[in-house]
Write a protein that binds this DNA or RNA. Structure first.
Lengths: 341, 341
DNA sequence: TTGTAGGCGTTATCAT
DNA sequence: ATGATAACGCCTACAA
């Protein structure tokens, strides 16, 4: 009745004190046993028994305060609905979980403000590190990343001077692979449905496409721009078809490609007979479509895994020099461009 | 030069002590000002200035130890690649973010062991609450949920006696809606591609399908079972077509439906002319397919939002009686069953 | 309004 | 091997 708390936590749950008292040892001994370091056979037995009896579970927060780490890794991504990020997330989660940590997922909506706010919040140290895959990289991103007290790994391009670990691919070359493949298949009017030109991937893919068509002596006038979503891809394809009649379309990602496929089929065009289609990112979506869509793989799983490993390495040793990993693009040919079923 | 730490944290970052010292006040005053409670105009000014000067950011862990809450909400889901969970996650994240908290996402792979392990780990109190959507519910789930010191909300069915907040829908009725619609459209050989029968949704949908076909005086022999994935749907449809010739197929979710669509198209059947198709969950996938797939909406976003709200309410007041919310299914008709484009 | 002091639950240090 | 004690960084009575 109203007796003062003795050893239990504020909410009545057992603490080390509870266990120690019950086992008749000091909290130091109890803690040691609970952490598996030291203790005589008898002490170990009594502490274990006491802990089991009261249902002791260590408080993760208190432990974090002491150890200066939370065991949490954050993954910030603009659109969790895009399968490419799901693939990355899975790969990251696997590595993170194996290291005994947990993954925190942030949706940023691609807003620069919310991404930098997120990066700044890292200063609160509620996570041990963050993997971020920004589609726009601004000065405030860079500033926030370099100022962060906890390690940050970027999946994507980053100015060379920025001393932050990063994993990149080469979607410029990737776009070229798609064009080369289509031209090799005899296509002569190759169009391109891109994402926004104020994004890093948008710019890279635009450059890659233009360089490739130029290489083949073709003009680069069949370009439409939208955002990186299904609806935008469909709309862009409709605009394209309204003004021209391409015999092949390269899409800046698979969502756009699926939207374009929809528009093509609706307008009665056959894929790949009338129009060949190539997407990018090689997500599940490309395989789930009918016909299945050829796609430029940018190694999402590999990039995710590498990013997670870079991050864990840096958490283990902050003194490491900044590292960069590069994952080469490769083309996966499927039915939409005349490949297999 | 090896001078002892004064007021900074172990890693050299400023703490309240740093700010207080610089402002020439006590840490209590500094803390008060930093939290916006009390302080004379002059004190407020000096503390603010000092905090800004040293770039003070409060340590989230220390604050959590004090406040007994982490500001984290967990969402545990078996397959983060399924768009239905992405939809739920988005809805949950919106509510959670609005409350100033952050979302932690766990992938359980649907393993009972890993789900209960997760629930047990809640005892560590590293999150303020958890939303879980298990497709199997075992005694150990129930036990772990009721024993959890932090609130748990379940999205899905739960035995009535279990005193845990939950949000459910009625996929049994949902399956019936699909059958009714197909029969109304003149289909007489309606098949069903279901997920595993040892899962809660698998059982409910099976019951719903059987009851509905019986209601229409039809037999329920065109049933194939796989798991809730694309590949399984495709394989199940292939098995089905190998042994029979249905004129309509109900699928237990959209992933299965997309797989079935693939199999149908590959085998040269037209959708909906030869075979009508209805999925379930009404995910983006249904809209992205061609033809677009009719689907039974189970209100994923609504369920996610409700679950998040139930959880926040309970965090605010642990004394609340257990609550249940029910979201009714509804049919969204699209081209795959003879509806619009 | 302000400062002192104690506690949140854990681990680490340092005598014993 | 063990126990008393001091952090970890923050908040908050309580007293001044």
């Amino acid at each position: 009745m109203g007796r003062k708390r003795l050893h239990d936590a504020a909410d009545g749950r057992p603490t080390v004190h509870t266990v120690a008292a019950r086992a008749g040892v000091s909290i130091a001994s109890a803690s040691r046993v609970l952490n598996g370091v030291g203790g005589s056979a008898e002490t170990v037995r009594r502490v274990r028994e006491a802990a089991a009896a009261v249902g002791y579970v260590p408080n993760a927060i208190a432990r974090s305060l002491q150890s200066q780490r939370t065991g949490l890794i954050a993954f910030a991504v603009e659109d969790i609905g895009n399968p490419v990020y799901v693939a990355m997330m899975r790969a990251i989660e696997a590595v993170v979980a194996e290291s005994g940590r947990q993954l925190l997922v942030h949706a940023t909506s691609g807003q620069v403000a919310s991404e930098t706010a997120l990066l700044r919040r890292l200063a609160h140290r509620y996570v041990d590190g963050m993997i971020i895959s920004p589609i726009r990289v601004t000065d405030s991103h860079v500033e926030a990343m370099t100022a962060s007290p906890v390690p940050v790994v970027v999946i994507g391009q980053l100015p060379d001077a920025v001393p932050v670990d990063n994993v990149r691919t080469d979607s410029r070359t990737g776009a070229g692979l798609a064009v080369d493949h289509l031209v090799a298949g005899g296509r002569t009017r190759v169009a391109f449905l891109n994402g926004p030109l104020d994004t890093v991937p948008g710019v890279a893919r635009d450059a890659g496409f233009r360089a490739a068509v130029a290489r083949h002596g073709m003009s680069a006038d069949l370009i439409e721009v939208g955002d990186f979503q299904y609806a935008a891809g469909r709309a862009a394809a409709e605009r394209l078809l309204a003004r021209s009649r391409p015999d092949a379309i390269v899409c800046a990602n698979d969502l756009i490609a699926v939207g374009a496929l929809h528009a093509l089929l609706v307008s009665g065009l056959r894929v790949p007979e009338d129009v060949a289609l190539v997407g990018m990112d090689d997500t599940e979506l490309a395989q789930m479509s009918y016909p299945q869509i050829s796609s430029v793989s940018l190694g999402s799983e590999i990039r995710g895994r590498l990013a997670a490993q870079l991050l864990l390495d840096r958490i283990a040793d902050a003194g490491l020099p900044p590292r960069r990993e590069q994952v080469p693009p490769s083309l996966v040919i499927r039915a939409s461009s005349g490949g297999g079923a």
